[in-house]
Computed example of a mutant assay.
Amino acid sequence: MQGNKRNEEKRARIVHLVILAVLQSAMAVELVFLISEQQWVHVFLVTGIMLTMALPVVLKARFSVQIPSEIQILAILFGFATLFLGEVRDYYERFWWWDLVLHATAGLLLGLQGFMTVYILNEDRHVDLHMRPSFLAIFAFCFSQAIGAIWEIFEFTMDQVFGLTMQKPMLGDPSGLTDTMWDLIVNAIGALVISVAGWRYLSRARSSYLDNWVRRFIARNPQLFGD
């Protein structure tokens, strides 16, 4: 059993490294073209994305917290789709649905993050918490919506202070309000999906990827949970 778990973790790490290498290669090629065209703002952005994605792998030995590879894969794919494809490759302008899909995905990922955070505390015998599955689901939903709202505030602030267009003007509404509301709506849909799925798994005592990620997180980080 332990051997199977180790093999599963090893495969996940290999997949993580392969995906990271492919994405980094694509961005490196784009970086060459951006430099030749002297698009310095995008050069800075792509360089920042590449460094941000690479640092967790480069500095892994120094991290006191080890995160499951599957979660790291989801994070780098989302960052690539949002920042590189969205901002640098102009997918937000090319495809009207790109922003909505990413916000729905963000709702899923943030809901998963909120669910895992409370679920880990609930499973830790050193923490006196015994929460019902319904509460975990509600917390995951609210957590995702709260972060989504903070992100919309960030977009509004960047547009107002630096004159950017992170809030995409829509037909009939150049203010960006409609874009903001649709972002929050699809974020809520994504958060609701993951919250209901998590509630069903916990209520029916089924095993899932969530259980595997939580157990591996606890096993890799015993310093966070006492002896």
Rank of each mutant, 00 (worst) to 15 (best):
Q2M: 13
Q2E: 15
G3W: 10
K5L: 09
R6A: 15
K10G: 03
A12E: 10
H16F: 14
V22W: 01
Q24E: 15
S25Q: 10
A28L: 12
V32D: 03
V32A: 10
S36L: 13
V43I: 04
L45F: 08
L45A: 05
V46I: 07
V46K: 09
T47V: 12
T47W: 04
I49F: 01
M53R: 09
A54N: 06
P56S: 05
V58D: 13
R62M: 14
R62S: 14
V65R: 00
Q66M: 08
S69W: 00
G79N: 12
F84V: 10
G86I: 04
G86Y: 00
E87L: 06
E87H: 03
V88N: 09
V88A: 07
D90L: 13
R94C: 06
F95N: 04
W96C: 03
A104V: 05
L108R: 03
L109S: 07
L110R: 00
G111M: 06
G111D: 01
M116A: 02
M116G: 12
I120S: 00
L121C: 11
N122V: 11
E123Y: 08
E123R: 06
D124G: 08
L129N: 01
P133T: 11
L136I: 14
L136S: 11
F139E: 07
A140H: 01
F141E: 03
Q145A: 00
A146D: 06
I147H: 05
A149S: 09
I150E: 04
I153P: 01
F156D: 00
Q160R: 02
M166W: 05
M170C: 06
T178P: 02
M181F: 03
L184C: 07
V186C: 04
I189A: 14
I189K: 09
V193P: 05
A197L: 15
Y201E: 13
D211Q: 07
R215W: 04
A219M: 04
P222R: 04
Q223I: 10
Q223R: 11
D227M: 07
